[in-house]
Amino acid sequence: MPSGTAPPLASLVVNVSEAPSRQVWDGTVEAVHAAVLMAQTDARVLELPYDVNDVVPKGAVLVRFSNVEQKSATRAAQAQIASARADFVNAGANFKRLAAIYPQGYVSKAAYDQALAQRNAAKGVLDAAQAQWRETGQAEKYTVVRAPYAGVITRRYVQVGEAVAGPPFPQQLIAIASLRDLRVDVKVPQSVAEAIRRSGTAEVQFDGGRERLAASSVTVFPYADPATHTFSVRLELSGGAAGLYPGMTVRAVFAIGEAKQLLVPLGALVERGELQGVYVIEGDRVSLRQLRTGDVVGDRIQVLAGLDNGERIATDPAAAARWLIAQRHRAVR
């Protein structure tokens, strides 16, 4: 190639331009729906099908208790209902018989009233027995604890064989968090809280910045921590945020104004381990230049050091690398 002739590579001149000024803070992923399931009956743990970090579907059995006492109470309640029903039927039949002959004066008013009271009392006993049966049946249902929604087990408080207590002081059993709806909690300095509130936009970055999600809403809570003078900011994420799990640390990126920045396309970036660079074209020469980069802005990345305003870079780093190899081969010949 004649001296001074630019290489036949796709390129562009990078220039300082106005771009969103972004600030980054670490945030913690939280589950919107999370619960600690409590014991609702006195029993002994027989089975714990899942352990911490297991993902479970909605309705999965998380804890199974012994139910001998509950079954016995249910059978006793059923027997009480049968006895109470028999008494009610007899009292009802007696009252019906007296009610039929009472208008003819064959029975006294006192006998009639007594029969009516006996029927009503028997009905009350039957109603109480049925209520007791429903209560014991519910207690038996409490011996099986199911997942209220699909999620991940975050903590287990009991072991197989352990006796647990129900109300009035119920014991904690299992903590579960839904993976469907997630949010990020961020603590930001009070100096930027108002700018974040006005902007109302944010982006969550994880997996080394390779994965990015736009927050569906941004809430700056209207009070500061008096110890740290920071505001809590909540970033809501749309359902199904793949790759994010409760407890993870992520980067929360906020756009809080405009600033002059030097940006290069992400496609022009060369990454070798933790090093980043671009192929710089100077006349007929091409060289790989290491960069210190900042935040990703759309499909471009901020250059903090290593590149000057007005320099030309190759937009296809693979083609630039092949061109350099070909040049070296020619030089050897």
Results as ranks from 00 to 15, higher is better:
residue 199 S to A: 15
residue 157 Y to M: 05
residue 135 E to P: 00
residue 194 E to I: 01
residue 94 N to M: 12
residue 103 P to F: 00
residue 104 Q to A: 12
residue 184 V to D: 03
residue 99 A to S: 14
residue 150 A to W: 11
residue 170 P to Y: 09
residue 212 R to I: 03
residue 215 A to H: 07
residue 120 N to V: 09
residue 131 A to L: 14
residue 218 V to A: 13
residue 118 Q to L: 05
residue 168 P to I: 12
residue 197 R to K: 10
residue 99 A to K: 11
residue 156 R to I: 00
residue 174 I to G: 09
residue 196 I to C: 06
residue 145 V to E: 00
residue 139 A to F: 11
residue 153 I to W: 07
residue 101 I to G: 01
residue 103 P to I: 00
residue 107 V to F: 04
residue 124 G to D: 12
residue 214 A to L: 12
residue 148 P to N: 06
residue 191 S to I: 04
residue 165 A to H: 08
residue 204 V to A: 13
residue 130 Q to F: 00
residue 105 G to V: 02
residue 99 A to L: 07
residue 95 F to H: 13
residue 173 L to R: 02
residue 191 S to V: 07
residue 182 L to I: 07
residue 168 P to F: 10
residue 121 A to K: 12
residue 198 R to S: 05
residue 181 D to R: 00
residue 99 A to R: 07
residue 124 G to Q: 13
residue 122 A to H: 10
residue 213 L to D: 03
residue 127 D to V: 01
residue 210 R to M: 09
residue 217 S to C: 12
residue 132 Q to E: 14
residue 180 R to F: 06
residue 141 K to E: 12
residue 115 A to R: 01
residue 124 G to E: 10
residue 204 V to N: 14
residue 112 Y to N: 01
residue 212 R to M: 10
residue 125 V to P: 04
residue 150 A to S: 15
residue 113 D to G: 01
residue 177 A to G: 10
residue 216 S to E: 14
residue 169 F to P: 00
residue 103 P to M: 01
residue 209 G to K: 01
residue 199 S to K: 12
residue 114 Q to Y: 05
residue 167 P to Y: 11
residue 191 S to G: 04
residue 138 Q to W: 13
residue 133 W to K: 15
residue 160 V to G: 01
residue 148 P to K: 06
residue 215 A to Q: 07
residue 177 A to W: 14
residue 118 Q to S: 11
residue 175 A to M: 01
residue 175 A to Q: 08
residue 206 F to S: 00
residue 182 L to P: 12
residue 127 D to T: 13
residue 126 L to E: 15
residue 191 S to F: 03
residue 196 I to P: 03
residue 145 V to C: 06
residue 92 G to H: 06
residue 99 A to I: 04
residue 100 A to Y: 11
residue 109 K to Q: 11
residue 96 K to R: 12
